[in-house]
């Protein structure tokens, strides 16, 4: 059953990622990883991340593993910061998420090209502004996701549906 969930979610992620990239160059995979971090079983999160990132690598014509690397590094940084700043539903927590999402968009701008061609990309002020805007929109999504999640799940029993 878990495999089915992961597969269905993967399809959804691919669809939403492609849709949002066309809509406003927003990336959904990392957003979902940040939102589900510490919320679901790590095996499910890992399976979802690996599957989705590999598929997206093929769709974007990246070298396989690029997306996974770009997702894992900001999450590792977020994990490091979480030792000092709690990642709870608070302003400092969302600030950390904002920084990590911004970093992810920064990686998206130059890492694929770096891996493919070995050459970096020039980051302009306009690009940085766009990244800040996209990170802000993504944090808003995280806030909305957390609100919906807290209504669906009991605080201490993250994997069980709230009983009516």
């Amino acid at each position: 059953m878990s495999i089915l969930y992961v597969l269905l979610t993967t399809f959804g992620v691919i669809f939403l990622e492609s849709f949002l990239v066309a809509l406003g160059n927003l990336r959904f995979l990392f957003l979902l990883n940040v939102s589900l971090f510490n919320k679901i079983n790590w095996k499910h999160l890992l399976s979802l991340s690996v599957l989705s990132s590999l598929i997206l690598d093929v769709i974007y014509h990246y070298v396989l593993g690029t997306n996974l690397l770009m997702v894992a590094v900001p999450l590792l940084i977020m994990m490091g910061i979480s030792l000092a700043v709690p990642l709870e539903n608070s302003l400092p927590g969302y600030s950390v998420k904002f920084v990590c999402i911004f970093l992810y968009y920064l990686f998206v701008a130059f890492v694929p090209n770096l891996i493919l061609t070995g050459q970096g990309t020039v980051i302009t002020g306009v690009m940085l502004g766009g990244m800040v805007l996209k990170a802000a929109i993504s944090v808003l999504f995280c806030v909305a996701f957390d609100i919906v999640w807290s209504r669906l799940r009991k605080k201490e029993e993250g994997t069980k549906l709230r009983s009516l």
């Binding site: 510490n38 079983n41 890992l46 593993g65 894992a72 201490e156």
Partner: peptide
């Protein structure tokens, strides 16, 4: 205890992701 173990597990997922990313990069390379 539950909460801290979940955090720890999520950390494992990140480490594994990193390792898998490097493996895939090398293999596709």
């Amino acid at each position: 205890k539950n909460s801290s173990s979940k955090v720890e597990n999520s950390n494992i997922a990140i480490y594994l992701s990193l390792v898998l990313a490097i493996v895939f990069l090398l293999m596709d390379g």
